[in-house]
Simulated scan of single mutants.
Amino acid sequence: MTNPAPALVVSDGQRAALEVLSKSQTASHREVQRAQVLLMAAEGLANESIAKVAGTSPGTVRSWRARFAEDGLSHLGEVRAGRGRKPVIPQSKIDEIVDLTRNSRPEGQTHWSVRTMAAKVGVSPAQVQRIWAARGLKPHLVDTFKLSNDPRFEEKLIDVVGLYLNPPEKAIVLCMDEKSSVQALDRTQPSLPMKKGRAETMTHDYKRNGTTTLFAALDVATGKVIGSCLPKHRHEEFLVFLKTINKEVPQGLDVHLILDNYATHKHPDVKAWLANNPRFQLHFTPTSSSWLNLVERWFRELTDKALRRGAFHSVPDLIHKIEEYLAAHNTEPKPLVWTATADSILKKVARGRVALETIKQN
C-alpha cells in the first residue's frame, strides 16, 4: 500500500475562497467539486477517500492537488488546453446572451424564454439553459417588493424587531392581525379522490356561501395562537377580540401587541379601552411592511393547509374548519423564530432605495 499524500498546504485566504466556492449555487458543478476536493485534501484525507466522497477518481484528485500546488487559485476554474470537451459556443456568444438577458426584452413580451433567446442568437435552447443556470439567471421568475414610505419607518422597525430579539420580562409579545373576508367557497361538483397515477381533482368553479373575518394573535415565544372568527372587520369586533386576549393572557403579564396601521386599531373607542387596560401596549409596524408581522406566516400556513383546497357549505362550516385547524395547531405549537437584526434590514432597505433611484435616473 502507498502512503497517504501529505495534507495540502492551503493559506487562510485560499481556504476562505475555496469554502465560498464549495457552497456556490451559480458556479459550475466541476468548480464546486474541485473546491470540495481541495478542502478535503487540506484536511489530510487520503486521495482514495476523497474520491469516494466527491464522486470522482483518485487520479483526478491527484491531478487537482498537483495543479493547485503549482498554480494556487489562479487557474482553478479553467480547463487545460488539450484536455476535456472543447467549448461549443464562443465566449462572445455567451456574453451576448447574458447581455440580452439582463438588458433587453423580446419584442412584444415581458421576458426571455430559452426558446426565444435561442431563436434570437442562433443556438439551442439547451445551451441557453446551461448558460443561464451557470450564472444564476432566471428571467421567468420575478420577486415582488415594496419599500415603505412611512416617515417613521426606522423607529417602528427598531421597536418591533427589538420585541422579537429582546422580549421584555413579565410580558407576552403577540403578533396580531385580521384575515378579513375569508370566503366559504363550495365546489359545484364533488371532488374526485387521489388514486394511483392521478392527483386529487376538484372543479375550477365554485359558489360563494358568505364570508367571515378571522382575528388572530400569535404568541412569539411559544407559537400558540389566540383566534376568533367574527362577522365583520370593524372597531367593534376589534374590541371584542382585545377582550378575548385579555381573558386568555394570565393577569400579571403585560401584553405587547404588534399590529398594522388599520384605522380600526386607532379608533377613539379602542383608545378609551386601552386607557382603562394599561397592561396592553400597541406597537405598529411601518406601512407596507406586513412581512414584519409573524402572524402573516401563520395565515399563509392556514390558507395552504386548511382553506385553499377546502369546500365549505356555509359560513358556520368554514368557521368550524378554521377552529379545528386552530385547535390542532395549539396542541403542538412551534415558535416562528426571528433572526434578522434591525441594522441588517435597514442596510438592505437602503440598498433597495439606491437601486430604485438609479433606475429612475436612467
Rank of each mutant, 00 (worst) to 15 (best):
G352H: 05
S92K: 14
M202W: 07
T339C: 11
Y262W: 14
L76E: 07
D159W: 07
L157R: 00
H29R: 15
S92Y: 10
A216K: 03
P278T: 08
G108Q: 13
H233E: 09
G44T: 11
N362W: 05
N166E: 13
A328P: 07
A275C: 14
T264M: 04
Y325G: 07
A54Y: 03
I359K: 12
M202F: 09
R353G: 07
L165T: 10
K138E: 14
P250S: 08
K196D: 08
I322Y: 03
T101Y: 05
T211N: 14
S288H: 15
Q109T: 01
T331D: 11
H111R: 08
A184T: 01
T203H: 14
P286L: 05
P106I: 04
V37M: 10
I50H: 01
S290K: 10
P335D: 11
E155C: 05
I50A: 06
L336M: 15
A340C: 02
L163F: 07
P151C: 10
G44L: 04
T213C: 11
R30G: 04
D343Q: 15
R85I: 10
E323M: 13
H320G: 08
A311M: 07
H235C: 03
D186P: 01
P151K: 05
A306D: 03
P58M: 10
T110Q: 14
V128R: 01
A66M: 12
L45D: 00
T358W: 04
C229D: 01
Q36H: 08
I172V: 15
Q25P: 03
D150I: 06
V255Y: 01
K120N: 02
I50N: 02
P151R: 13
K23N: 10
L274V: 07
Q109P: 00
I319K: 10
G310F: 04
T244A: 03
A217W: 01
P87T: 09
Q109F: 11
M202Q: 15
M117T: 04
H320M: 10
E301V: 14
D260P: 03
R198Y: 07
S28G: 11
G82F: 04
L294N: 06
S57L: 12
Q33W: 01
K321Y: 02
R85E: 13
T285H: 09
A66V: 06
R115T: 07
K305Q: 13
K348T: 15
S63G: 12
F238G: 02
Q25D: 09
N330L: 05
K195C: 13
L274S: 01
A328L: 12
T60I: 11
G13C: 12
V160S: 01
A328Q: 15
F241A: 00
Q36D: 11
I226L: 09
P190A: 11
E169M: 10
G13K: 07
K224M: 13
A35I: 00
A7L: 08
E301K: 11
K321C: 05
L174R: 06
P250W: 04
V79M: 08
V173D: 04
L185Q: 03
K179W: 06
D304C: 09
E31R: 07
A126I: 03
R83A: 11
H313F: 09
T222V: 02
